[in-house]
Every structure is written in C-alpha cells, then in structure tokens.
Nucleic acid binder design. Sequence first.
DNA 1: CATATATATCGAGATATCTCGATATAATGC
DNA 2: GCATTATATCGAGATATCTCGATATATATG
Lengths: 102, 102
Amino acid sequence: MDVEKSIAALNNPMRRKILEWLKDRSNFPPALPEHADLDGVCVAYIQEKAQLSQSTISNYMGLLKQAGFVSAERHGQWTFYRRNETNIRAFLSAVQDELLKS
Amino acid sequence: MDVEKSIAALNNPMRRKILEWLKDRSNFPPALPEHADLDGVCVAYIQEKAQLSQSTISNYMGLLKQAGFVSAERHGQWTFYRRNETNIRAFLSAVQDELLKS
DNA sequence: CATATATATCGAGATATCTCGATATAATGC
DNA sequence: GCATTATATCGAGATATCTCGATATATATG
C-alpha cells in the first residue's frame, strides 16, 4: 500500500473517471462472445470512451495498476483491466488512518 | 468540496506530514502565553519542523487552506493554522463515494 | 512466414508543480 | 515615522507530469 503512488495516480480527473466507469461493465461496449466469461475491459474500449490516445490510456492503466487500483489479465492480444476492490478499500483505509488517526 | 483540488493538495508528502503534525499541538513548541487560548500553529513553527523555506511553507499552507484541510486565523502578526476536521471528513467521504459508490 | 490487431514502450514538446530567494504587506513597539 | 517580526506574494530555475505520435512487442490468422 504505497499511499504516495496511489494519490499520484488519483491526481488526474480522467484516471478517476476510468475507475468509476470500471464499476459497471455496461459503461463499455459488450464483450466479444469469446470473452464473455472475463470481467475486465480491454484498453481499446477504455480509450474509445476516454477519447484520448492509445498510448495515453495504456500509460494511465499502467499507473492505476502500479497503484493497485486495477488488476490486469492478458488474454491473447487483449489486456483486460478490472478494478481491484480489495486494494481500493485498503487505500481508502490507509488515507483515512493517515488523515484521522491520532 | 473540490475533490480535484484536495487530491492535488495531498499529492505531496510534506503537506500530508504537516496535516499529521497538526493533529497534536504538542508536535510544536509551546505557544506564547498570549496565544494560550488559540488552538492553531503559526507558520514559523511549521517551517522549523518541516525544514523548508518560509515561502514554501506559506505556499503549502495556502494550498491546504484552499483545499479546506486547514483553517487560518490571523492574530496580530501571526497566522494560526489548524486542521478543519469537518472538511477533512467531508473529503474522505467524497473520495470514498467516488471510489466505491455504485 | 506475412499481415493484421491489441497493447506497451519510447522520445519529446507543452504544461504544471516544486522550491527557493527576494520583495511586499501587515502588525508591533519604540 | 522607523525598525523589527511574521507572513504572503512574486519571479524563476529545476524537475515532474501530461499527452501525443512513432515504434516495438506480442498474439492471432491466413
């Protein structure tokens, strides 16, 4: 739990937006039939919704992953990103402690 | 509650450290007798503990104030900064909502 | 193996943040 | 008014972040 890196990752409106979008798979186009069993979203879908360049989104997802907010799983040519709820809660808990605990 | 501005203010280790120090007045030198009734800390004390320049600390406190994390009160030539617990909790609540609420 | 597709990485210009010293402002005391 | 003290603001160089297009890598398919 690197609070430093996590806050830096959140210090960008689009990255926070992406984390919100990932709460609900239906924010993105339906998965291909062969990916029906996977609960992540591929980079191209995120890029389409964010309207930023492919490299920027790939970079963003890398930062969110390093911060622990998302997990990535490769399947063939696709990388599926999904929220890591455990780590998100751990971050919130850590920030809460840092800001409130005496 | 400007989450954007708040996260930016927290995106710096020393500013977070200062917020932690302000939890406990005894992290700083004792107040002057004439300030005994005030529960804030003056800039000079914060600067001494942080070991950064006066202008940097003044800037930091300004950012923390704009984010709502601290309140400032002028008394003569001194400005006393103290945590704004209400706003800190409001921020935590907002981030929690943004990250978790569906 | 050649081509196509999806993603990651690289390099760079634009912009923002950091942090300082210098200076300005405000209040105090003589 | 003048000197001192506390804080705020200004201007700037150093560093970091943003975001892109170009390129590299990995996989799938013919």
